[in-house]
Design a protein around this nucleic acid. Structure first.
Lengths: 337, 337
DNA sequence: CTGAAAGCGCTAACAT
DNA sequence: ATGTTAGCGCTTTCAG
């Protein structure tokens, strides 16, 4: 910057003004400085600017695993929306581990980024106090169960799972299995989606049969496959499956196909997340679209708002619930798109 | 830091020493400082450290799109390996656009990260000069065609595509289509894989028929589907498909299924990348596993090496070629795993 | 083993 | 419309 100033015959401050688009500059001065910048190949040192301004132009996105398609697609959306706000995105994988999520809340990233979007999976209701202690811009994704001390963007977990279950009821299924439960958990996606499943059963006058609820810790294709194979081996009889996400559902489809069970004739399957894969699988997978891109957009928007607000003006935490949509495909209705 | 120093009754320098694990400290002093740190909840300001040290502890991973499963899985691996080296990862999506890739090479991230891993797609052979001008640690992923001025980690594009094609020949296919070509391109994955395809045809004594080569700009499921539908509509007759990546292959499977064409009986399909989806689809997809995790590990390793080397000690650019593996599944051999 | 002082590159405040 | 000065929070000499 020094060199640029000398080359252009101006002060260092003028160079700074040019870079930052300060309006009151003589066009001639501006041109001269820009020429010097071009000639010397000067680039601002972002680290110095960060130090001075106390902001970094980066946000962190902390999620379980990028290899889960839903989170990959979510990250894609977040990065795009962040870019529109001039922000870069640092990705932190928590592996759904509680200690790593606590670490994030503890502020390990505080001086590195302007704010954090966290998609918690490992945290339980005992950890609520941790959220209240957070003193940096934070937006939570996916749950609305940790109290209200912090901004939340969430999908309609209960309603979505209920709609998925109700859809199976509508097409005449009466023995509907659930895949992906986390036994003992009441908050978090697993608990909420199980809740939606139970509500829909009750509304249809169908009994809740614990023998049809298959747990799956991590929501991967492999665990979905295991869960369904487990149900079959235990002798469970069912004509429908509500999988708590699409990865589980694709594992379930794989297991059913391997056992020669026809979908949807013998067993209909619904997923949750509506990842791209679900529109291309054989059969294509009926799923609950949770408004992923909306969620990403709102999360970034809320975070930017927290980031740019003056520290005095307290703003009440917001809760955004994205609307869901049922996408009917061949895994429940053979001649659907 | 000031406050900590005062609370512990030492100088600011001693606090710094404690934080950075300087060995020659009286245990008692160290304990007192650590107590003060704990009490005040002090955390080092990374921005300031960055400014002073000229390094940030971050690397950037620039790739086309996270929603493409291969890149999501790659990013997952890169993040994990980077973490082992104490590095965080900033993800930059280029959308395979040439201008964005050029921007990366121009050093837009230079002061933000210690180094960059770039997976170029939009750049062509005309852009070779740009690489020579790069003066920050850079590792290129996926191609080995831009000359040798910079470290490369690449997969066996030609050999892998040849092996995929040869596999189809071995199971008796003689009219093998290729999906994903970039007409006119000779470097880049598309050009190289087409080359492997042609080599394998030649080795088997089969003719190369341009009518069986379907272009697809972006390697998505949707473009794979379009490409195969296009072939069918053009009246092309084929009994095998080599898709240049798995996303294309899944699109192809979808199109074939929609047209009532049985896989592999009537048409056998091979992909490239071996994403997780391919082990669960119906039918499961035969694919070339390109050594993704190896590639990520080596890329991070090379980058760390460049980052930590003293600027004087010139080290010749390295080229790492990861070995591929053919994973045979049901899309070519019905009773395979 | 610990302290004092200088400065990384930039921008905000004030001065002109 | 542009120049001057101070300082962001840390580490790095260099002294003790």
């Amino acid at each position: 910057m020094h060199d640029v100033a000398r080359a252009a015959g101006v002060s260092i401050k003028t160079v700074s003004n040019v870079i930052n688009g300060y309006p009151y500059l003589r066009a001639e001065t501006k041109a001269r400085v820009e020429a010097a910048i071009g000639e010397l190949g000067y680039q601002v040192n972002v680290a110095a600017r960060n130090l001075r301004q106390g902001r970094t132009g980066m946000i962190a996105l902390a999620l379980p695993e990028l290899r889960l398609p839903y989170f990959a697609e979510l990250a894609d959306s977040v990065i795009q929306h962040a870019e529109h706000s001039g922000l870069r995105v640092l990705i932190e994988q928590t592996g759904a581990r509680r200690d790593r999520e606590i670490d994030i809340l503890g502020g390990s990233l505080r001086h590195l980024v302007d704010g954090v979007i966290l998609s918690p999976l490992g945290l339980g209701s005992d950890d609520r106090a941790l959220f209240d202690a957070v003193e940096f811009p934070l937006v939570l994704l996916g749950e609305s169960v940790f109290g209200t001390a912090v901004d939340h963007v969430t999908m309609s977990n209960v309603e979505g799972a209920a709609a998925a279950t109700a859809h199976l009821v509508e097409i005449g299924r009466t023995r509907i299995a659930a895949v992906g439960a986390h036994p003992g958990e009441t908050i978090g996606s697993a608990g909420l989606r199980l809740d939606g499943y139970r509500q829909a059963l009750a509304a249809a006058g169908l009994p809740y049969d614990p023998a049809l609820v298959a747990p799956a810790g991590l929501w991967h294709r492999s665990t979905g496959e295991q869960a369904v194979l487990g149900l079959l081996e235990a002798g469970a009889v069912f004509d429908g499956v509500v999988a708590f996400n699409d990865a589980l559902a694709h594992g379930a489809l794989h297991a059913l196909h391997a056992r020669g069970i026809r979908v949807p004739d013998e067993v209909a399957v619904v997923g949750f997340d509506d990842i791209e894969e679900s529109a291309y699988s054989t059969p294509t997978l009926t799923s609950i679209a949770p408004g992923r891109d909306d969620i990403a957009a709102r999360a970034v928007q809320l975070l930017v708002r927290r980031t740019t607000q003056r520290s005095g003006g307290e703003r009440a935490p917001e809760l955004v619930v994205a609307p869901y949509e049922l996408r009917v495909r061949q895994s429940t209705v053979p001649d659907a798109g």
